[in-house]
Amino acid sequence: MLAKRIIPCLDVKDGRTVKGVNFVQLRDAGSALSLASFYSSQGADELVFLDITATVENRKTMVSLVRDVARNISIPFTVGGGIRTEEDVERMLSSGADKISINSSAIREHSLIDRLASRFGSQCVVLALDAKSNPAFPSGYEAVIDGGRTPSGLDALEWAREAALRGAGEILLTSMDKDGTKDGFAVDLTRIISSNIDIPVIASGGAGKMEDFRTVFEDGMADAALAASVFHFHEIDIPELKDYLRQSGIPVR
């Protein structure tokens, strides 16, 4: 049976992890490669690296990180942040990334999804969709960009449907209402998107305890769940989380 995936997300700036990761097991917790290896050995199913580097010059360090991760880690990983052109995608995939995620750039230019899917294949094109509750929209949610500051004017579900039709292979759905709250995933939002499109949906934003993962898989119909700080700060241990989910009857690796 296809397993539900658990995906730690690493924010990377200038090749180093940020968000105050606190790992006593690791000699260098700021090393994205060490942290990625640790999560892989813990049973993470995939990894996401989000490049929050501000300058184009420093983005080069991301390419060398991607190369190191690809050499050392035997699970799939996605790279997102600052990917705007086919050349950016080509650079990441040829360095060893399995998938790339695009967000604002796809909202600004919808046909970017078509071009990437036809050139590189849908399997490596992840649409990152940041959604915010807004009753003025038919689904009740609007797609937003720039970290939630800018409304896109697009209904979140309509945008997800369009992205799937244009060739996105997967949707990384982040609730801007829940992100950072540790209050649980946005179950309603996740179910609305996941049950209405036929590509996999990764739920993100709001993970605080193990039950939250169970709920977003069972009630939110998520195919995968992503979290950052609960893993980085040891609030949730991946082997323990998987045991819990397994006992709850949710298929996990």
Binding site: M1, L2, A3, R5, D45, S122, Q123, G169, E170, D198, I199, P200, D223, A224, R253
Partner: peptide, 15 residues
């Protein structure tokens, strides 16, 4: 086959 309500591609870890 499409339209069965399942997700395509078959993506992820399976036994």
């Amino acid at each position: 086959p499409k339209g069965r309500g399942w997700k395509i591609p078959h993506m992820g870890w399976n036994t």
